[in-house]
Amino acid sequence: MRVLFVSRGSAAPVFGLVPLATAARNAGHEVLVTSTEDMVPVVTSVGLPVVPVSERSEEDYGVRGRDGTPLAFPERGAREQRLFAGGWYGRLAAGCLDGLRDLTCYWRPDLIVGGRLDYAAALLASSIGVPFARQAVDIGEWSEVDEGAAAELAPELARLGVDAVPGPDLAIEICPPSLRPAGAPETEYMRWRPGNTQRRVEPWMLTRGSRPRVVVTAGSRATPEQHVDYLRPLIEAVHGLGAEVLVAVPGALAEAVAPIAGRSRVGWIPLDVVAPTCDLFVHHAGGTTSFAAMDSGVPQLVVPEEDATFDLGRRMDAAGVAIALHPDDLTARSASDACRRLLQEPSYRVRAAEAAAEIRSMTPPSETVRRLEKLAG
């Protein structure tokens, strides 16, 4: 069968779809990935074929409306931020539809797979009449984001004769059942596997030293312009622990962070490779980062950058695998105190190990491909 994977325009959602796309390809199926033009190097770096369907970046859709009006992400309010994100991803979906339809004129898929917020996948599947599978790429449920997307996509939905973004024929969840909120819809579960870009593995990545090892990261989208001040108190906090510190950041940010990182290792570090040797992850509530830590049973300090994602950290906090610290409460002292608790109180490592065992018990991507085959008929 032909399977089209539709991803948004940033690295994390691409990484989230890689395991299932690779499994489908390994099972003998034809696979194509679509995203924005600037994501082409990211997709090719993980060994998958890609077709760009928008010359504009995801970031550009977030700062300009359809008519070119400048837009700004709300500074406060979880609901306001989620509704804005829905409009953002809705504009991105609308901007990709022409490219997607052009692709299906000469390469018609039997099945379309999209990430949880990749609304173009649902619209395309509905318009050409093929099944649609939706895969989660983090632990979010995002109903308010869906609401914002539906409002932005009103013209496209009207042309389809519907008033909401079409639901999936198959919903695939990667969040362990124990971490999902009460009342969450039924779904099929798939085991999280890493799909991030790699680099040359060095011996230090695979071995533990005499000190605790702590990873600090702001994710694959972090930039020098936006994230130096975010990382500063986190790096200062872990330096006070006497730990070995790994500052995992994209190359462009590494140089800007180096002056405050001291003797830490700084740069692009494949989290899935180093995670089994780590004692603590300190991060922004990113999906890839959260799962890399949980998969290896590593406790986490989660400091979301915005109100919209604080709920993700709060759910991990409630499950006992992390401490969530609101951005308003972030100081080097508060972060240091939280890190000490995570390193010293055994309950966090015990609960993180239980979450890792739960992840290992879930259906692997290779078996989920069989479910896709049935869906495609």
Rank of each mutant, 00 (worst) to 15 (best):
G195Q: 05
A352G: 06
S220G: 12
A243W: 08
E173H: 03
A292T: 09
V51Y: 03
P194S: 11
V63M: 11
S7D: 03
F84M: 05
T217G: 00
E147V: 13
V130C: 07
A332R: 03
R82M: 15
Q81L: 12
A376E: 11
A21I: 13
M205A: 00
V6I: 10
T197L: 13
I139K: 01
S210E: 15
T217D: 01
M362I: 12
L206H: 06
L330N: 09
T289G: 04
L179R: 06
S7H: 05
A151H: 12
G167D: 10
V6R: 02
G297E: 06
S366K: 07
L103T: 11
V302T: 07
I323M: 02
A125H: 01
A85R: 13
I174C: 11
T309Y: 01
V46I: 13
L97E: 04
S210A: 15
G95F: 03
Y119G: 05
A275N: 02
D67T: 13
V14Y: 01
F281A: 03
F15S: 02
R56D: 06
A78T: 14
R116Y: 01
A308L: 14
T223R: 14
E173C: 07
L343E: 06
P270G: 08
R340D: 07
V33N: 04
P19N: 09
V53P: 08
R76D: 15
Y106Q: 13
T44W: 06
G320Y: 00
G90N: 04
W142P: 05
G377M: 11
A324G: 00
E373S: 13
